[in-house]
């Protein structure tokens, strides 16, 4: 009972019934990509992408390697710019604001949009320091508050029970799957609205993969998730909508069930039936 009373004060930001004024006008569409083109120097990596990503859903992006799916997800928080010589045209509206515009501060964008990477990449620091890294750089210094964030984030990433007794140990001592969940916890610690996942299970064993997949289903209740995967079964298991990309273009975008059971495009059918890729 005490939990429910607390709940009221504690504002679940992602829930529309416990509203704050800033969140009420939140559009259902989180990311609206229009006519996006991207070049790495001479290479035309993304061609005329048009996509809408909806709140509190898991959107999976599939396609053969080199199709541009990783490039696209890295454009959504502008990490793609770490490669020199990247140029774009078109717009990506995040909550109504064009993130490709120069006035957009990438740091602000990335504070609201978290990212989980292909290879687990914890910092060579303790688990505790890994999770508090984000809150600290964003100015949260109170120890009691940080402790709370660490517990909540690690619980949110379903790894609290495994690491609660060794928070001060180096994160490198964990298994690959645990490392990846610590990375997810690190990402949750600053309470992003969207989580981008770039093939988060490709470096993990099957059991760890399953754990992360269950976690994703759980996280979807509170977060909008965009996940790139090379694994079609994974997309079918966890996503609400699926995008199929090929050679830098979006070939098909629809409800996951429909895309896998009744693809409209011949190329999608060929890909999901394993005829290429």
């Amino acid at each position: 009972m005490s939990i429910t009373t607390q709940k009221k004060v504690q504002i679940d930001v992602k829930n529309n019934d416990t509203t704050t004024e800033s969140k009420t006008e939140q559009p259902r569409v989180v990311y609206d990509t229009k006519d996006l083109n991207l070049w790495y120097s001479e290479t035309h990596a993304l061609k005329d992408i048009n996509l809408e990503v909806t709140e509190n859903e898991v959107t999976a992006i599939i396609g053969p390697s080199g199709c541009g799916k990783s490039t696209y997800i890295k454009t959504l928080n502008r990490m793609v710019e770490l490669v020199p010589g990247v140029g774009t045209t078109g717009t990506i509206a995040y909550k109504g604001k064009n993130i490709l515009d120069n006035s957009m501060k990438v740091e602000d964008l990335r504070t609201q949009v978290g990212m989980v990477f292909q290879k687990p990449n914890p910092f060579p620091k303790s688990i505790y320091e890994n999770v508090t890294y984000g809150p600290k750089i964003h100015g949260i210094k109170k120890k009691s508050l940080l402790d709370e964030i660490v517990e909540n984030s690690l619980r949110g990433a379903a790894i609290w029970d495994e690491v609660k007794d060794r928070l001060n140990q180096n994160a490198y001592g964990l298994s690959g799957g645990q490392q990846q969940r610590v990375c997810i916890a690190r990402c949750l610690a600053i309470e992003p609205d969207v989580i981008l996942m770039d093939e988060p299970t490709s470096a993990l064993d099957p059991i760890s993969t399953l754990k992360v997949e269950e976690l994703i289903k759980e996280l979807k209740k509170k977060y909008t998730i965009i996940i790139v995967t090379h694994n079609m079964q994974q997309a079918a298991r966890i996503s609400d909508k699926t995008v199929f990309m090929l050679n830098g273009e979006v070939v098909e975008f629809s409800e996951t069930d429909q895309l896998f059971s009744n693809p409209k495009d011949k190329r999608t059918e060929d890909y999901i039936t394993g005829r290429f890729g």
Binding site: I3, Q6, Q10, I140, L145, I149, A189, I190
Partner: peptide, 9 residues
């Protein structure tokens, strides 16, 4: 996880 005293974001 919902059980938190402050809103970090």
């Amino acid at each position: 996880n919902v059980n938190k005293a402050v809103n970090v974001s």
